[in-house]
Nucleic acid binder design. Structure first.
Lengths: 138, 138
DNA sequence: AACCAAATGCAAACAATTCTCATTACGATT
DNA sequence: AATCGTAATGAGAATTGTTTGCATTTGGTT
């Protein structure tokens, strides 16, 4: 049960929150939009409103349970925080998402921020391309 | 006149397009949202509709005249394509935007994409932080 | 079991962007 | 320079993604 994690994060363990945590935790997809989460809830027969989904996702992000990404195309995508920080590489044809972590890049980013007088708080790096599978088919 | 660039890009040289090109070209701001552009048009007394602004910006992007960024917070920001490709570092307090180019990072990105079987088409890197000026004040 | 603040659901409100369609303006052709 | 077909435009309605207001419900504490 996610009840434990929720309390640890200082959040009341309500039904919607537990359900949403379960959905994000079930490693089917990893990257879900608010709407994806909402649909998943409906499919599993849970009667949760869209507003709640958005509110809960925002709280989870603030609590550090999940992170929000802005992939090309606009709307937010959420991902459970587990394991190391990582960046993303996306296929522009099929939407596939892979993750990577590169120490060289991480270090250069900090260095660059420092050089320019910035106290770096965050960063986002997305690489777009055509994945191996999509390159093959015609 | 931007008329020349427009034709070179295979676009009819219409008044709205010329105006928008001028606005983006006037190095006052460099990073403008669609609404910024729309407001600038209104202020200079030009009667251009929002729909046209969005259409034209999308065409300019497709034609490679400008590029679109998704800075944190959501909506698109556009920037004239001139000079080298570069990435961005943004102040989370005042919204200041600086640009940078780092060969090390660029190369690593290509390498990473290749390693994972992707044919890289594009990438976006944003560093967020607090700029020097904002660090000083309180 | 009873209570209160916090959380939820619903619907309305919003913001950014896109679409529809009747009107207008390029620019190619005479 | 006048004509004409097509592509571009403007106005506003329509979508999409997200947020808000408020009456009702629920979790957790007593």
């Amino acid at each position: 049960m996610g009840s434990r994690e929720l309390k640890k994060a200082g959040l009341k363990a309500t039904l919607p929150r537990i359900k949403i945590l379960e959905i994000l935790g079930s490693n089917d997809v990893r990257h879900m939009s608010a709407e994806d989460v909402y649909k998943a809830l409906l499919e599993s027969g849970d009667d949760v409103g869209v507003a709640t989904v958005y509110r809960v996702l925002t709280q989870f992000e603030a609590a550090g349970l999940i992170s929000r990404h802005h992939f090309e195309g606009g709307h937010s995508v959420f991902e459970m925080n587990e394991g190391e920080h990582h960046d993303h590489i996306l296929c522009v044809k099929c939407g596939r998402v892979d993750e990577f972590l590169d120490e060289t890049i991480e270090k250069r980013q900090h260095a660059l921020a420092k050089e320019r007088g910035y106290a770096m708080t965050d960063h986002s790096l997305y690489i777009y391309g055509v994945c191996a599978a999509c390159q093959k088919e015609q």
